[in-house]
């Protein structure tokens, strides 16, 4: 399957380990990654906070480019980018006024867009099974943290999973051989891009999430969202400083753990890019 791939600004910089691990696991799972040619930033939170046209037009330009590559599916691993592209395609197909604006702006006409826009979990969930697993993650106890962007609001994104108690990461971790612990913070919001504008929110929410994860008995947090990952991993030291805590909880992408279970060496999965080192834990469980 040819997958149109939109790395977005985060995956070429601060979330490199997600990019690295996605690329490492896709080939063996029969997925051929084709980067969207000359993609642009989707505008993130800022575009939709400051205007209607650019928040649609910026991701729409990428969708049109992806469509031309002849791929069947499109993914943006960052949930915020995924949401913007999903909505842009919907508007392109259903909002005649916005479409006309885009055509006027670029001086081209656009067809109906049919490429299937999926979040990263959807891309892998039906393509990953125990037959891909050569090194089960025995003894690893995790909590799965979906954050908010992937699962809410339910009616808009028709993601198959439950918005309040999703289970798809549990299924993937189960296939990997890891043990998922139930906990109440699966879909709590980490504060997302408020990390730039109102850091107190991100520190408090991060502290709460890390504390509940720890109290639940998890050794690590599994994430699917770049913002969640950064706010919990990169900012864990800031949280410890602010609240005089001593959290030392690795926060890993589900794709990194899939790779490990598939027998791919850790150095090809971006483990060295994490701020809270996951290696001591993985070593102690003989998973490295």
């Amino acid at each position: 399957m040819k997958l149109s791939y939109y790395p977005g600004c985060g995956l070429s910089g601060s979330s490199k380990e997600l990019d690295i691990s996605v690329k490492a696991i896709s080939g063996p799972l029969g997925i051929d990654i084709v980067e969207v040619p000359d993609w642009n930033c989707c505008g993130g939170t800022s575009a939709h906070s400051t205007g209607h046209f650019l928040s649609f037009a910026l991701p729409a330009r990428n969708v049109v480019k992806a469509e031309k590559t002849g791929c069947d599916e499109f993914t943006a691993p960052c949930p915020a980018c995924y949401v913007r592209h999903f909505l842009a395609q919907k508007q392109l197909n259903e909002d005649a006024k916005m479409k006309r604006h885009l055509e006027n702006a670029l001086g081209q006409n656009f067809e109906q867009s049919d490429i299937k826009i999926k979040n990263l979990i959807e891309v892998y969930i039906d393509r990953f099974s125990s037959s891909n697993v050569t090194k089960p993650l025995k003894g690893l106890k995790v909590v799965n943290y979906y954050g908010c962007a992937l699962v809410k609001p339910p009616k808009t994104f028709n993601f198959f999973d439950d918005p309040e108690n999703p289970k798809s990461l549990e299924k993937i971790m189960d296939t990997c051989g890891a043990e998922s612990i139930e906990w109440p913070y699966k879909t709590e919001c980490c504060g997302a891009s408020l990390c730039f504008t109102n850091q107190d929110v991100v520190w408090k929410n991060g502290r709460d999430i890390l504390q509940v994860a720890k109290d639940s008995g998890a050794q690590a947090i599994v994430v699917a969202c770049t913002m969640c990952q950064m706010n919990l991993d990169m900012r864990q030291a800031q949280i410890n400083k602010k609240y005089k805590t001593n959290f030392n909880i690795p926060v890993m992408y589900f794709t990194q753990l899939m790779g490990l279970a598939m027998g791919i060496p850790a150095d090809r999965l971006g483990f060295d890019k994490l701020y809270v080192d996951a290696k001591p834990l993985l070593h102690s469980l003989k998973l490295l």
């Binding site: 910089g13 490199k16 642009n40 205007g51 990169m234």
Partner: peptide, 28 residues
């Protein structure tokens, strides 16, 4: 630490289709 992990690029990088981006901004 970000820089040490190779996660920061110190220089900006322009995409090829800057003319299109400019048209979108002007239109907005």
């Amino acid at each position: 630490p970000m820089f040490m992990k190779g996660k920061l690029s110190l220089l900006p990088h322009n995409i090829k289709g800057m003319n299109e981006i400019k048209r979108l901004y002007d239109y907005a």
